[in-house]
Design a protein around this nucleic acid. Structure first.
Lengths: 134, 134
DNA sequence: CTTGACCTTCCCGTGACTGGAACCCCTATC
DNA sequence: GATAGGGGTTCCAGTCACGGGAAGGTCAAG
């Protein structure tokens, strides 16, 4: 398979696939013309990576997951530990975003939103009011 | 005021303040020795930026907010529109993260997490199972 | 033989900084 | 006067995960 076919099937841009090869996530073969020749196993790895990225795993986490995927003697506990650590990260980001959202909603509610210049949003940002930062 | 004093008061690293000057967010004066000389107004702007960044506004959004802050004839509606647009972005990110979290929690729950190699997390990532991506 | 689609590498740009090197300035002490 | 230290300055490179685009090789069809 050539790169664009793989890209379509995996749902990734060709550029991204070249990048993944460059950083050693995948190692496709090469044809005599210099074109990358993707095997089914490369395809599967790319789909795997695409889904892991879709769940928010970083490239380095994907690398670890791929290593476990390839290691037939792995312990599922190791995979679960990685996933649970990532869940903690996700939960932390959600908490941060919800705090931002709450603060900003408070400011927006207080703002008339008309033609006048008085704006509680700006004064809230300027004065370090009690309604501030996460 | 010199840069480190301002940095301490605004709760920003000195490096960040130099960066903000470089991109034109602030324009502190210069003393005869080449040192930056921050006025109170620079201080206020930096605190303003720090809080806006803490609420997740991008640098370019901060630039717009600062312009409105400086414009005594602004309409609060303009500020409110910016804030509401940002709230939409935040809500979108929260939704994405919650979807990731839900999917990953489902996989983690299904995983025994013992010494055996069988792992629903890995097969879930590999097989594009029905329990997948946001 | 040419056209056009595909492939290749290479290099620069993104956002918002962070780290480090190399160097100037100011004060205090010996 | 020399020196030590704790400021400050600039510039360069790196981060993360790619994306854009140029310059050029390859392939199948007409």
């Amino acid at each position: 398979m050539n790169i664009n076919e793989v890209a379509r099937k995996a749902g990734l841009p060709a550029k991204t696939i070249r990048y993944y090869e460059e950083i050693g996530l995948i190692r496709p073969l090469r044809g005599g013309n210099g074109y990358r020749a993707f095997r089914d196993s490369d395809m599967h790895k790319l789909s795997f990576i695409a889904r892991a990225r879709g769940l928010g795993f970083s490239i380095e986490e994907c690398r670890k997951l791929l290593a476990l995927y390839d290691d037939k003697g792995r312990a599922s506990a190791d995979v679960k530990a990685l996933a649970e650590e990532h869940l903690v990260q996700i939960a932390g980001k959600i908490r941060e975003l919800r705090a931002m959202e709450a603060t900003l909603q408070g400011l927006v509610r207080a703002c008339a939103g008309d033609h006048r210049p008085d704006c509680p949003i700006l004064t809230g940002l300027a004065d370090a009011g009690d309604a501030c930062c996460a």
